[in-house]
Computed example of a mutant assay.
Amino acid sequence: MPWILVLPALVGVAFLVLPFAGLLIRAPWSTMGARVTEPDVLAALWLSLSTATTATLVSLAFGVPLAWLLARAEFPGRRLVRAVVTVPLVIPPVVGGVALLLVLGRNGLLGQYLDAWFGITIPFTPVAVVLAQVFVAMPFLVISVEGALRGADRRYEEAAATLGASRVTVFTRVTLPQVLPGIGAGAVLCWARALGEFGATITFAGNFPGTTQTMPLAVYMAMQRDPEAAIVLSLVLLLVSLAVLVTLRERWVNA
């Protein structure tokens, strides 16, 4: 065992674990039950879970085809498209929120027409929460699925095509089963990132209890007026995230 790597590895683990241990130690366990069942907490938790799940489904619908395009298709500007897809990973989320607002706001590039022609206003609604989450989370799915597609053995696809299978059949019966673990892993990462989204959400969707206030926003607000409530909300979010991630990882990644 390379002991020279063990010490920094242990320091890294401690750095990641100690903050969570601090939450557990400082948590107000005597009032935990009453705080968790407060209507505002339950509303924020439900909104976070429902919007993160919806954002993941939307990301799957558009991200898997996009990943296939980047992995298998040759077209001019593919590198530029890949760069644009990964930009949300590196820019501050609040910048993404501002960008969404400038495009889909009531005076935005597209939002002004949605409002004038159809009476549709997206910002500061639950739909805005989902769109903000999709914007910051879908790149995780695309990168994971693209990597799985590049690593898949294309000989099986070629054999199926030789036997007369159509492109749709090859994709659904041969390609998709091969990359399903990658799709599952990407979906887990996408869901987790959407669940924890803060910057783009507060900028594009606002922070309205019962409407757009997700759990991260509720934690932020609680930290300013009641730190113990913030600890409780953080623990709830942590436990939900861990439970779902562990369950989905066992079911999809190890499939």
Rank of each mutant, 00 (worst) to 15 (best):
W3Y: 06
I4M: 15
I4N: 13
L5C: 07
P8M: 14
A9H: 11
F20T: 01
I25R: 08
I25D: 08
I25N: 11
R26M: 10
W29Q: 11
M32Y: 04
M32N: 01
A34S: 05
V36D: 12
T37Q: 11
T37L: 12
T37N: 08
E38S: 09
P39M: 09
P39I: 06
A43Q: 10
L47M: 13
S48G: 10
L49E: 00
T51K: 09
T54I: 04
A55S: 15
L57H: 03
L57M: 04
L60E: 02
G63I: 05
P65I: 00
A67I: 01
A71G: 05
A71T: 00
R72G: 02
E74L: 15
F75A: 09
R79F: 09
T86S: 14
P88Y: 03
G97K: 01
G97S: 02
V98K: 13
L102N: 15
G105L: 15
G105T: 09
N107V: 13
G111V: 14
G111D: 08
Q112E: 01
L114K: 13
F118K: 09
T121G: 08
T121P: 12
I122N: 07
P126M: 02
P126R: 00
P126F: 05
V129K: 12
V130R: 07
V130L: 07
L131S: 01
F135Y: 00
V136C: 09
L141R: 06
I143E: 05
S144D: 02
E146D: 07
A148W: 01
L149Y: 03
G151E: 02
D153Y: 03
R154C: 02
E157H: 00
E157W: 01
A159H: 03
F171Q: 02
F171I: 00
R173N: 04
L176T: 03
L176W: 01
P177E: 00
Q178C: 15
L180E: 05
P181D: 00
I183P: 09
G184Y: 07
A185C: 15
G186D: 12
G186H: 10
G186Y: 10
V188A: 14
L189W: 03
L195A: 12
G199N: 06
T201K: 04
T203W: 03
N207D: 09
N207A: 14
F208Y: 09
P209L: 13
T211Q: 13
Q213A: 13
Q213C: 12
V219L: 09
V219H: 04
M223S: 12
D226P: 06
L233V: 04
S234M: 04
S234E: 02
L235W: 08
L237R: 02
L237D: 00
V240N: 00
A243G: 06
V244Y: 03
T247L: 13
T247C: 06
W252H: 14
W252C: 08
W252F: 15
V253D: 01
